[in-house]
């Protein structure tokens, strides 16, 4: 089959700067989001995800301007997530040039928001972001729960059931982040990735934990992900997108080279 698996560099943006990642204690500055996005566009990234991790609302305008600037110069799909809580927020980001929006916490507190958003804007632009942690003990069958507030608050919601429910509500794609792995560089949680990818009819993006190129390949080969997302391995020049693509293609994965 000819549809390529996607590599998606992720820009975690705090106060107008790309930072290393949400769960890093030691946040390193990785540059201006517009410059970083342009670099990945030139490298042949398949999409870009812009995650606004700024806590305060006053910085939201900065995000809108940056999305506008990126969308004027980067002609690949752009997903914007973080702080998307209403249809007005979605409208604003789409008008600024985002192609898709990521809905995270708001979906947990109000699942009908996903349904409303999908009906209004179409499933193709609604990405539901799921942050989960493994809650099963060693040796038990895998069970994962949704966590909110940067992984601090458990919700009691089963991650696989939630993913299925979100697609029924109209999510066109799932962005799955393992909070256990995020920032560890130990690779994706392949078990939950594969459980959710096999249970849902829509594409799944694996996220959290990439430390090397084999992790990306494993996300597709073992996790059955349709796309793999990574941040720090690209930000600090450890690997380039073409290197990652060549590596994955050499393992028989269909890529856009």
């Amino acid at each position: 089959m000819a549809l390529a698996k996607r590599i998606i560099p992720c820009l975690d943006v705090d106060k107008g700067r790309v930072v290393k990642g949400v769960n890093f204690v030691d946040i390193r500055d990785a540059g201006n989001p517009v410059e970083v996005a342009k670099r990945y566009n030139e490298q042949g990234a398949d999409e870009i995800t812009f995650l606004d991790i700024t806590a305060s609302n006053e910085d939201r305008d900065t995000t809108v301007h940056m999305v506008e600037e990126i969308a004027s110069e980067v002609f690949i799909p752009l997903t914007v997530g973080g702080g998307i809580r209403s249809c007005d927020d979605i409208r604003r980001m789409l008008n600024a040039g985002a192609d898709k929006v990521g809905i995270n916490t708001a979906a947990v507190f109000n699942p009908d928001f996903v349904r409303e958003a999908a009906e209004r804007f179409g499933s193709q632009c609604i990405v539901v972001a799921i942050d989960c942690k493994r809650v099963s003990a060693e040796g038990e069958p895998g069970r994962w729960e949704i966590f909110t507030h940067g992984g601090r608050k458990p919700t009691g919601i089963d991650a696989v059931e939630w993913a299925v429910k979100m697609t029924e509500y109209g999510a066109g794609e799932i962005l799955l982040t393992s909070m256990d792995r995020d920032g560890t560089k130990n690779g994706f949680d392949l078990e939950v990735t594969s459980a959710i990818s096999n249970a849902t009819p829509v594409p799944v993006i694996a996220s959290g934990g990439v430390g090397n190129l084999q992790h990306l390949a494993d996300g597709v080969l073992k996790g059955h992900a349709d796309a793999v997302l990574a941040a720090s391995i690209f930000h600090f020049g450890e690997y380039t997108v073409p290197e990652a693509k060549a590596y994955m293609a050499a393992q028989g994965i269909e890529m856009r080279l």
Binding site: L3, A4, R6, S123, G172, E173, P201, D226, R256
Partner: peptide
């Protein structure tokens, strides 16, 4: 169609999302 299958009988995701030839 649901299910949509490829030549090997593997289930394909819908929407058709991504880069295709």
């Amino acid at each position: 169609g649901d299910p949509l299958l490829d030549e090997q009988g593997e289930k394909l995701k819908v929407p058709h999302m991504g880069w295709n030839k």
